[in-house]
């Protein structure tokens, strides 16, 4: 089964948060609403960052919030949240963060290629600002799909 596609329901634009924990919670809330995870998964995503630091900020302006597979992951899930105001995650190079992708997987090797293709769309430095300006989920999906197809090699 491929990575679940981004749908309008998996996207939340202009979330108002005050810190990185709020940003991760927003990404978790969308995963919960979609039925992919139970609420404890959100806390586990926060715990990963508390334990290992801001390495989840994998590119300028982009955080990939995630945790290990677990009993609280019902199905593979993907969410995308843009922030009304960027927040700092404490990363030396890639802060501040304006876009958070939430990821939940049921097994450790699931979908790595699909996740990489999604992430690689963000190698275009214009994508984070463009997403921040998006006001419709469908427009945000189009922006990412354009970048994804361009980047597949």
């Amino acid at each position: 089964m491929p990575l679940p596609p981004l749908t309008p329901a998996s996207i939340r634009l202009g979330a108002v948060v005050t810190d990185w924990r709020g940003a991760v919670r927003a990404a978790g809330d969308v995963l919960i609403a979609g039925g992919s995870v139970e609420p404890s998964y959100t806390q586990r995503m926060i715990d990963v960052i508390d334990e290992f630091g801001a390495y989840v900020v994998i590119a300028p302006g982009l955080a990939l919030a995630h945790a290990r597979p677990g009993d609280d992951v019902r199905a593979d899930g993907l969410s995308l949240v843009t922030l009304a105001e960027p927040v700092s995650f404490g990363h030396a190079h890639n802060d501040p963060v304006s876009v958070v992708i939430g990821l939940a997987v049921t097994t450790a090797d699931a979908h790595v290629t699909g996740i990489a293709d999604l992430a690689n769309a963000f190698n275009d430095p214009g994508l984070v600002p463009a997403l921040s300006m998006a006001t419709e989920p469908s427009a945000a999906i189009d922006l990412i799909l354009q970048g994804t197809t361009r980047d597949v090699s």
Partner: peptide, 12 residues
């Protein structure tokens, strides 16, 4: 840190 997600992107 978690062995899924980010390390997968780096691997690919």
């Amino acid at each position: 840190g978690a062995g899924v997600g980010t390390s997968g992107i780096l691997k690919v």
